[in-house]
Design a protein around this nucleic acid. Structure first.
Length: 591
RNA sequence: GCCCCCGUAGCUCAGUGGAUAGAGCGCUGGCCUCCGGAGCCAGAAGCACAGGUUCGAGUCCUGUCGGGGGUACCA
């Protein structure tokens, strides 16, 4: 579903069409102009750098600005303004450019053609929601792995951040043209799951009336009591002598359904759940270990080779473990791959998992991790390199921790709500969804760069008033729908509209709308999905004043003007639907 | 101690090395004969600190201070 404008379709020599965005189109003009200026002797010979260009921020500076003349000042041995003049002199004509100006120290400012902008309205309506699709990733497979929480308890607010970032990243990569798979790495192996099984067994015995306590470090959540009751009803006392395994199986299956249901509430649906367990069962972890041994990256010892005296003392009573020589890749210390009891740590299956991903043929693999796992991905990368594979397709988005906060009614200060599995505390995503809405959660989690330490103010998100940007954005869509409803009720339509009757204000919105392609491109290339959230708010901020000033229907408005404006609001509705879709938010028709 | 991340308005946060650092909330003052006011207009208020690189630094480098995370048999 590839679409054309806002980007001109350019025919290449091979006759294949390539979608291009406005910054690149402008940059091409400038590059051509520099070459022509050099050929004409107006500029000296030098290697042409990457042309910087971007949308301008304030009136009077055109729509797109390029500061390349300043950067060239040194190599060209000329004043920036003189360079800019030489470039402008040789600038080729382009349908989308109405005016070019040199301003300030040597900026080249481009103003878009109003006619060209008008045409984009028709293009948007013709292409519908596919209008902002790019072909950046056409023919390429991408995978986004996110959430990947241990199935040992309910999804927490903190976990949902990575989930929303990951799902939005997937949506943006799809918009950029990639064939995207969403994957959940289901950590159903390891000590945590053994503990879960043991905890459930204790709850099961309790359900049968036995006086047993939870194992040390066991899971205390009430959900295990519910699971245990269900098990006791189903199995009776058949399992009193069983070990932890059937309990782990049962808990895991329950958790799997629970996690899926929780995530589905906020619009997150994974295409694939990859079981960590399968890497043990099919032997791939042992193959990886063997390969690392063969390549000389492991050794067996009870302490790592550079251990301090303190570390040696700690290891004194341990049997030997198998170490991965990560110091060969610049790590500060080697890492344990197989513990002294013969059980692998998370490192080994993690490496085997990423090897598996690469072998599945993804061109890019995005991995969304919390900061508490922030170092681990480096070890995985070292593992992939040690196996002689290329880790360059793996990209990690690390999101900093979420602190749930609320205002102290007495002091007015924000204070942290301590995460706890007890009820009554805002800790699980289920509870948060109940109190707010999927849209509000998604927007607030998304509207922060992953690197920022997020203070999640529950009351602020709960507030359903005009101080909430979620509704500000959705309301733009609602208003477009309202106009269309009114038009229909009055028997009016936008068919055959003369878009030349539209004014600068409406076109300013279209200009802003065209930036969506640039935002999608930047998000996809830089792996920064939060950009779309800020863009959406800016877009709504451009829309609402126009809605206030530019009435489509009413006394004294000529019918042809009404028709043209209805056409405009029709396009605006498509645009808001699209941006809300990209964020995984609903686009309501009424509020 | 060492490694990673962060420090921008009263609060929550944006800001590909480019022009006069933006938005929301809160605060102050205006706007309802309206296609839904969950809206519009205006105002006050800020780059932790010190050096350095650059024609140009909130952005890059070094250091200091402050906060979060990690730091060999948890994931």
């Amino acid at each position: 579903m590839l679409q054309s404008a806002p980007f001109h379709i350019q025919e290449t020599n091979q006759g294949k069409s390539t979608v291009k965005l406005l910054p690149e189109l402008h940059a091409n003009l400038i590059e051509t102009a520099i070459q022509a200026a050099q050929a004409a002797g107006d500029l000296p010979e030098f290697e042409i750098p990457e042309i910087p260009i971007g949308p301008t921020k304030r009136d009077g500076q055109g729509d797109y600005a390029c500061p390349v003349a300043m950067a060239l000042s040194k190599v060209a041995k000329k004043k920036p303004r003189d360079i800019a003049e030489a470039i402008v002199k040789h600038l080729p004509e382009a349908a989308f450019v109405a005016d070019v100006e040199i301003a300030g120290p040597g900026f080249i400012n481009f103003t878009l053609s109003q006619d060209w902008l008008r045409q984009q309205i028709e293009q948007i309506i013709a292409d519908g929601e596919g209008y902002f699709s790019l072909d950046l990733g056409t023919g390429r497979k991408a995978q986004v792995e996110f959430v990947s929480a241990n199935p040992s308890g309910p999804i927490t607010i903190g976990r949902s951040r990575g989930g929303i970032i990951g799902d939005t990243m997937a949506r943006l990569l799809e918009a950029a043209g990639f064939d995207v798979q969403r994957e959940y790495y289901f950590n159903n192996a390891g000590m945590q799951m053994v503990m879960l099984g043991k905890s459930l067994k204790a709850r099961y015995l309790q359900a049968l009336g036995q006086d047993v306590s939870l194992p040390e470090g066991g899971y205390q959540g009430e959900y295990l009591i519910d699971f245990a009751k269900e098990m006791a009803e189903k199995e009776g006392d058949k399992l009193v002598d069983a070990d932890w395994k059937p309990f782990k199986e049962f808990a895991e299956a329950k958790m799997f359904e629970w996690i899926r249901a929780t995530l589905a509430q906020i619009g997150i649906v994974h295409d694939n759940f990859f079981n960590e367990d399968s890497l043990f069962q099919d032997g791939s972890i042992w193959n990886v270990l063997e390969e690392l041994e063969t390549r000389g990256y492991t050794y067996k010892a009870s302490e790592w080779e550079g251990a301090t005296d303190e570390e040696k003392a700690k290891a004194a009573n341990l049997d030997p473990a198998i170490w991965f020589r990560t110091t060969k890749f610049g790590d500060e210390k080697d890492r344990v791959m197989v513990k002294s009891d013969g059980v692998p740590t998370y490192t080994l299956p993690d490496i085997a998992y990423h090897k598996n991903k690469i072998e599945r043929g993804f061109d890019i693999m995005v991995n969304v991790l919390g900061a508490d796992h922030g170092q681990q991905y480096k070890v995985v990368q070292m593992g992939i390199e040690a196996l002689g594979m290329d880790p360059s397709g793996i990209h990690v988005i690390i999101n900093q921790m979420v602190r749930a906060v609320r205002e102290n009614p007495e002091t007015g200060e924000l204070e942290e709500i301590k995460m706890s599995t007890r009820r009554g505390v805002y800790d699980t995503l289920d509870e948060l969804v109940e109190m707010t809405s999927a849209d509000a959660i998604r927007y607030h989690m998304l509207a922060r760069s992953p690197g920022s330490h997020l203070n999640f103010n529950v009351e602020e998100v709960v507030k359903q008033s005009n101080d909430n940007p979620v509704y500000y954005i959705q309301n733009a869509h609602v208003r477009c729908c309202g106009i269309e409803r009114e038009a229909e009720a009055r028997g009016l339509s936008d068919e055959g509209a003369d878009i030349n009757l539209l004014d600068d204000e409406e076109l300013a919105f279209i200009r802003k709308a065209l930036e969506m392609g640039e935002v999608i491109e930047a998000s996809a290339k830089l792996y920064e999905p939060h950009k779309i959230a800020f863009y959406a708010q800016e877009l709504a901020g451009t829309f609402h004043p126009i809605y206030d000033n530019v009435r489509a229907i009413g006394e004294g408005i000529p019918e042809d003007v009404t028709r043209a404006r209805l056409r405009f609001y029709h396009a605006a509705r498509i645009i808001f639907k699209r941006v809300l879709d990209l964020m995984g938010m609903s686009a309501p028709e009424r509020m």
